[in-house]
Design a binder for these strands. Structure first.
Length: 564
RNA sequence: GUGCCCGUAGCUCAUUCGGAUAGAGCAACGGACUUCUAAUCCGUUGGUGGUGGGUUCGAAUCCCGCCGGGCACGCCA
């Protein structure tokens, strides 16, 4: 729960602030607003551990040279009871802070004490948040878009959980509406074709072309024969859909489980109709005057709530749209189940849904800020240098199962979380298969395995690897040791930023940074064979490194193997 | 046509919501295992940040125009 980086930042901010006040009192500087002091970690190591740019920011306001301001502030800073060792004015007017190594040593002690809890915080203050993701159509297998959404959504949920939110993961099952009818029609066609021959029954123009539909039909025939051959078409479709839907759902469920994604709740769209929630929401919107009729349809005045255009709630054939049940669904999320915050993940092709959903939530009297809709860009698959279409209709879609089989769960999850959600993602299947051993995830896992192996050997030599509490950490003095320790100190901050921005991709990058610094350390410094006190100090460092890697990989739901 | 996302090294991507000399990985090249895992490390090469303006102490980042790519604009979900 401790965040030493935060502590250091506050120390520096306070020091600068009181130094500035003192400078004003002494008449050295004029007064202006410095409520926002940014404390940054410079890119270049020579620029110190932290830097502050306040001198340049206020230079204009008080009409002084920024370097002069910086020098004055530096002179007034009191270093007592802080980690600050020295300060320098550099460049156009940066104040660079060099810290005593203690802050890194203290970070190691925090890690050793908090272990698996290291990096968690109470940022969320126990608020209830729902993350709804994947929510794939149950009419077919999971595709690459679902794979990306699954990896992203699960990590966001993990990060929020680590940040003190009470998290619920939910999968919205679209078991109602148009696509289910299409599903039934497609199944019927395949069923009849297999009984009577391809030409005997036309396949619907916009039906699902996938092989899986044929397989469902075949399996149904295996189980129940031709009992639907002479049935009424509507009944035939219904029966086939009711047979195949649970089969698909079971497959989706187990596929996601293999992927390391488990939902707390599977919420049925159909249940919203059965429980009358869709009707109630319609009545509510009508009573509030948010609807009107036009061309035989019922419309929602989304434009009254900041959306670009109005939307149909009830089609002129009397059937509600998907949007209507989704409004009921969100009423259920916010009002019935009382989530403080709801996060939905949608592929970029569902972008059009964002505006109207926000408008709908607004119309329900819920602050739209409580709903976050994350749009992730689509995945483009390449195979043999060409774009492989991922449409379910082509029948050649690459499924999540295929992906896990080809590149492995860990690599897939890591890969999908390496990129920010807003960036387009090209997935070259040939490359992923061929280079799976070069995937960055192994770099991280290898670091962990190396440490475990090292500790095992030390243990065999009679070293008590648990006995590091009293290690003399000040013996860690080389650049490699300190850089690694300082990087480990940043972990709670990384988690916090990920939670705030709902962007876990920074964690994979951080994991790579930690691993790189560890590998460098490993090549520069030895643990086994060093003099006892130094060995103990380095063992402590290495144990902390393994702990942090475990914590990150835990958040990413990726294995941390003890040997490779 | 309108809206959103994207454009950074040969390739895939970063750049900590305006900072210092734009960084990694892969690929290429040169080195390092008799010692804790070489799935590693060290080094070299590689850039008019799509393009043209603007804002300011300072722009890859913010604003405007243009070019190129993706997505959406349905009484589908």
């Amino acid at each position: 729960m401790k965040n030493i980086l935060e502590t250091v930042r506050i120390q520096i901010k306070n020091s600068v602030r009181s130094a500035y006040s003192e400078a004003i009192e002494k008449g050295l500087l004029q007064k202006t607003d410095i409520s926002e002091i940014a404390v940054e970690i410079p890119r270049e190591r020579e620029h110190g551990d932290f830097s502050v740019n306040i001198a340049m920011q206020i230079a204009g306001a008080i009409k002084r040279n920024p370097r002069q301001i910086a020098d004055i502030i530096i002179k007034c800073v009191k270093k007592e009871n802080t980690y600050i060792d020295k300060m320098e004015c550099a460049g156009p007017g940066f104040i660079n802070f060099y810290l005593k190594n203690d802050w890194a040593y203290d970070a190691l002690e925090i890690i050793a004490e908090e272990r698996a809890q290291y990096g968690t915080s109470d940022l969320g203050k126990g608020k209830k948040v729902m993350v709804e993701f994947v929510s794939a159509n149950p009419t077919g297998p999971l595709h690459m878009g679902n794979a990306r959404g699954g990896a992203l959504g699960d990590c966001i949920a993990n990060v929020l959980q680590a940040s003190g939110y009470e998290v619920t993961r939910e999968f919205y099952v679209n078991d109602a509406g148009n696509q289910i009818e299409k599903f039934g029609m497609s199944l019927e066609a395949r069923y009849m074709q297999q009984l009577l021959g391809e030409s005997a029954f036309p396949f619907p123009e916009d039906g699902y072309m996938g092989e899986d539909i044929k397989e469902h039909a075949k399996e149904y025939i295996n189980l129940y024969g031709d009992k639907l051959l002479n049935a009424d078409s509507a009944e035939r479709q219904k029966e086939l859909a009711e047979y195949a839907l649970p089969v698909n759902l079971e497959r989706i469920k187990s596929g996601l489980k293999n992927y390391g994604v488990e939902f707390d709740n599977w919420f049925s769209e159909q249940s919203l109709y059965q429980d009358g929630e869709v009707d109630r929401i319609l009545k509510y919107l009508k009573d509030k005057g948010h609807t009107y009729e036009k061309d035989g349809a019922v419309w929602f005045k989304a434009s009254d709530f900041g959306s670009e255009k109005d939307e149909v709630l009830i089609r002129n054939n009397g059937m509600p749209t998907y949007f209507t049940s989704d409004i009921a669904y969100h009423y259920n999320k916010f009002k019935k189940r009382r989530f403080d915050r709801v996060i939905n993940l949608l592929g970029a092709d569902h972008y059009g849904h964002v505006g109207r959903m926000k408008a709908a939530v607004n119309a329900l009297g819920i602050e739209p800020e409580r709903l976050d809709i994350i749009i992730f860009q689509l995945v483009r698959l390449y195979r043999g240098g060409e774009i492989a279409r991922m449409s379910k209709r082509t029948g050649r879609a690459i499924t999540l199962e295929d992906l896990i089989e080809e590149v492995g769960r860990d690599a897939a999850r890591f890969y999908f979380n390496m990129k920010t959600s807003g960036s387009h993602l090209d997935f070259d299947l040939d490359l992923a298969v061929k280079q799976s051993n070069e995937n960055p995830v192994y770099y991280v896992q290898y670091a962990h395995a190396r440490i475990c192996s090292m500790m095992k050997l030390l243990e065999q030599e009679g070293v008590d690897i648990n006995d590091t509490d009293d290690a003399e950490l000040s013996l860690l003095k080389t650049g490699e040791e300190l850089s690694l320790a300082e990087k480990l100190a940043q972990y709670p901050d990384e988690i916090k930023t990920s939670a705030e921005t709902l962007e876990p991709s920074r964690l994979t990058r951080y994991a790579l940074d930690v691993s790189a610094l560890f590998h460098s350390f490993y090549n520069a410094c030895r643990v086994k064979g060093e003099e006892n006190e130094l060995m103990k100090a380095r063992l402590a460092l290495v144990k902390c490194t393994a702990q942090v890697i475990r914590n990150i990989l835990g958040v990413l739901s990726i294995n941390a193997p003890e040997r490779m």
